[in-house]
Simulated assay, not measured.
Amino acid sequence: MFGQLGYLILESFRGWKQQRTVILPSLITIFLCSLLLAASLAAFGGVMRVLAAEKTLYTIEAFLPGELPQDSIKVIQDRLLHSKHVGAVEFVSADSALADFRRHFDGEMLELVEGNPIPPFFRVKLDDESRKPSELVKLKNELMRSGTFEEVQAPVEWVEKISAWKFKLIFWPICLSILLLVTLSLIICNSVKLSLLNRKLLVENMKFAGGSYLFIEFPFVLEGLMQGFVGSGMAVSLLVVLVNSLSEAVPMFGVYLGGFGLMFAMVVVLVTALSAYFSFRTVRGFLLAKRNEQD
């Protein structure tokens, strides 16, 4: 049994050497398709992270003209909480705002200014049902007209852009991934068919000698498996290097493109499994067709 297994494995590697003119173009194409597939899935994962963080953008910061008594702050906060479309209201004092600014930005920016230039403000968040650009603009305008606040800010432009591109950002990566999977399947099938045609006489002799379907199919399936593993492995390795370099150069992108190791591993497993499956399916179809011709 182990002798037969060793022979089949050697036959697979021998096939790689003998059919290199067929396998090499297929391997390069699998590499390119796997690279695009992994990049498409990484982009899709990044988009999903952006969309998950989108809800934090539906926040309005309403700045007070100066320090107010605690009673007045409580009254304004209660009024905001009972406003339509408001889900939560948080009061940020001037000291808290200054401490938060120092955590995120260089403190040297404040050295030329005396005292605390950041006024207290309310952070108003929309409820889940009202997370729409139109509702954000409407609430922002209402707060500005109230006369209570000196300045009202909201990331309206970003919210509108994400809302306008949301469907495209999800739809196209999914379509591209499906198209690449179909392309990979066709490439693998054609590669195995060409290999079969070049070794048609050997396959027929093995069949006439009493070789089982498994015995005949094993070398071709192993060849396909190796093509998928090598091609996708090289593609994922290259993409990991590119993503890490991009993350180091632009840390902001690293937040959305990092941590996809499991996804890239799944791409290798998926492409390898597809290669093995379609190799098996192609050879089995060839053997069944030959049996029907004999019958």
Rank of each mutant, 00 (worst) to 15 (best):
G3R: 06
Q4C: 03
G6S: 03
I9P: 01
E11M: 13
R14K: 12
V22L: 08
L24A: 10
L24T: 15
S26I: 11
I30Q: 01
A38M: 06
G45F: 15
G45D: 08
V47Q: 03
M48H: 08
G66S: 11
E67C: 14
Q70N: 12
D71N: 11
D78S: 13
S83M: 14
K84W: 05
V89M: 09
V89W: 06
E90N: 09
A99T: 07
D100A: 13
R102I: 01
G107H: 11
M109P: 00
E129R: 00
P133E: 14
V137E: 15
K140P: 00
E151Y: 13
P155V: 03
A164L: 14
I170F: 12
I170G: 11
S185A: 15
I188G: 00
I188K: 03
L202R: 10
V203A: 06
F220Q: 00
L222Y: 06
M226Q: 05
G228K: 02
V236E: 01
S237A: 08
L239I: 11
L239W: 00
V243N: 02
V243Q: 11
G261W: 09
F264Q: 09
L274V: 12
A276P: 15
Y277E: 09
F278D: 03
L287I: 11
K290H: 13
N292T: 11
D295Y: 09
